[in-house]
């Protein structure tokens, strides 16, 4: 019964909404974004400043996400086609190989909301670099927290059906051009989530995350290495 319900949820292609993130801001994660190694804490004076900014950011952050699960109808090493109400959408690039074991694909957009970024920009204009940097770190943490809720919900839906999600893969990752963002965004009415694309395909608010997660039989879901394995930028600092 549970398996049937999960499968039915997974085959429902309607958008699903994550309206809020209940988990509080992970201070350690913010410190990591600010460059503090694990286990190192700032001195009392800096810690006081950071906590003030984190407190302010927590009041204005509005993390949310939207996602859809779409059946895969065709795939090869360099493309992956999903079924949509209007027909199909074909994503190009190494995504085909990376998510190749997937029966369905969850596409998602998650964001920290616009206010954190607005305040960060204001602080930067006022030359409060530290405040701006802390706000940006909190923005990154909140956007990823919203993404984490999407991934958790996917795991909860997929698990009882004997399925599992892959790692997320985002347009702009090596082997998948950033312009693929346009296809991903075309799958949503983005007004609710409040994220838009610039002409250069960057998301606004900047503190947003988009991507695709494969869903396949747990035994078949294999992470086909790192996206970096498919990248031609061998001199990239982010290479893993």
């Amino acid at each position: 019964m549970v398996m049937q319900q999960s499968l039915s949820e997974l085959s429902n292609t309607q958008p699903r909404f994550v309206e809020r993130v209940d988990e509080p801001i992970d201070r350690n994660e913010v410190l990591r974004y600010l460059g503090y190694p694990e286990g190192v804490t700032p001195n009392q004076r800096i810690a006081g400043m950071l906590d003030d900014w984190i407190e302010q950011a927590s009041r204005i952050a509005a993390p949310r996400a939207v996602y859809r699960v779409l059946p895969v109808i065709a795939k090869d090493r360099k493309s992956l086609r999903v079924e949509t109400a209007a027909g199909f959408t074909e994503f190009r690039g190494a995504i085909g190989e990376f998510l190749g074991s997937s029966l369905s694909i969850a596409v998602f957009i998650a964001t920290a909301g616009p206010q954190v970024e607005r305040l960060a920009s204001k602080l930067l204009r006022e030359q409060d670099d530290l405040g701006a940097m802390v706000l940006n770190a909190v923005g990154a943490e909140r956007a990823e927290a919203a993404e984490a809720v999407v991934l958790r919900q996917l795991r909860e839906m997929a698990g009882p059906a004997g399925m599992a999600p892959t790692l997320p893969y985002s347009p702009g990752y090596c082997g998948m051009k950033l312009v693929e963002q346009r296809k991903l965004f075309s799958l949503f009415d983005t007004q609710w989530v409040g994220v838009t694309l610039t002409p250069d395909c960057l998301m606004q608010p900047i503190k947003s995350v988009s991507g695709l997660v494969g869903l396949g039989l747990a035994a078949d879901v294999v992470n086909f290495g790192s996206p970096c394995d498919r990248c031609e930028h061998h001199n990239c600092n982010m290479r893993r």
């Binding site: 600010l34 460059g35 503090y36 800096i46 530290l130 940097m133």
Partner: peptide, 17 residues
Amino acid sequence: AGEYFVPELLIAGRAMK
């Protein structure tokens, strides 16, 4: 030396400026 991190750099830079 790993004794200061980005926030310490920022506030020192602000005092300097």
